[in-house]
Simulated scan of single mutants.
Amino acid sequence: MRDANIYNFRRALPRMSWDPRNLYNLWRRSLGPLVREAQWKDTSLTVFQQRWISKRLVRAYHGDYINEKIFKRWYLPATLPDVRPREGRSNSQNSVMLLGKWAKKDAVVDAVSKKQEEEDGKGLAPVGSLMFSEIERRIDVVIFRACMAHSVYEARRMVVHGQVLLNGKKHTNANTRMAPGDMVTVDPSAIRFLQESAAPKTVSELNDESSAESEEEGSPRPSVSAAVRKASDLTPFHPPPYSAPFMFVPAYIEVSFATCSAIYLRHPTARPGYSEIPTPYHADGEVVRLAWEWYSRVRPRIRSKRQMARMPENRR
Results as ranks from 00 to 15, higher is better:
1 M>P: 10
3 D>M: 07
3 D>Q: 13
4 A>H: 06
9 F>E: 06
9 F>C: 02
11 R>C: 06
12 A>S: 14
13 L>S: 01
15 R>I: 03
15 R>T: 06
15 R>S: 05
19 D>V: 00
21 R>N: 06
21 R>H: 04
24 Y>D: 07
28 R>N: 02
29 R>L: 01
31 L>S: 05
31 L>D: 03
34 L>E: 00
34 L>P: 01
35 V>P: 01
35 V>Q: 10
40 W>M: 05
44 S>Q: 12
45 L>G: 04
52 W>A: 13
55 K>S: 08
58 V>K: 04
58 V>Q: 04
58 V>D: 03
61 Y>V: 04
64 D>C: 12
65 Y>T: 07
66 I>P: 03
68 E>Q: 14
69 K>P: 00
73 R>T: 15
74 W>C: 03
83 V>D: 02
84 R>D: 09
87 E>P: 07
87 E>I: 11
93 Q>M: 14
95 S>V: 13
104 K>H: 11
106 D>M: 09
110 D>M: 07
112 V>T: 08
118 E>R: 15
118 E>I: 09
120 D>H: 08
120 D>V: 05
121 G>S: 15
121 G>T: 12
122 K>G: 00
122 K>F: 11
123 G>P: 05
128 G>H: 10
135 I>M: 07
137 R>N: 01
141 V>K: 05
143 I>Q: 05
147 C>A: 15
149 A>H: 07
152 V>R: 13
161 H>Q: 14
163 Q>P: 00
163 Q>I: 02
167 N>Y: 09
168 G>M: 09
168 G>T: 10
169 K>G: 03
177 R>W: 03
178 M>R: 09
179 A>P: 00
180 P>Q: 08
181 G>I: 05
185 T>V: 07
190 A>M: 06
193 F>K: 00
193 F>G: 01
195 Q>D: 15
198 A>D: 11
198 A>F: 14
203 V>T: 11
205 E>I: 14
205 E>W: 09
209 E>S: 12
211 S>A: 12
224 V>Q: 13
228 V>S: 08
230 K>V: 10
237 F>T: 03
238 H>N: 10
240 P>F: 12
242 Y>R: 06
243 S>L: 11
244 A>F: 12
247 M>C: 12
248 F>T: 14
249 V>G: 10
253 I>N: 04
253 I>Y: 04
259 T>I: 09
264 Y>K: 02
266 R>G: 04
267 H>R: 14
277 I>V: 15
279 T>R: 02
282 H>Y: 08
283 A>V: 12
290 L>I: 06
292 W>C: 11
297 R>C: 10
303 R>K: 14
307 Q>Y: 08
307 Q>L: 14
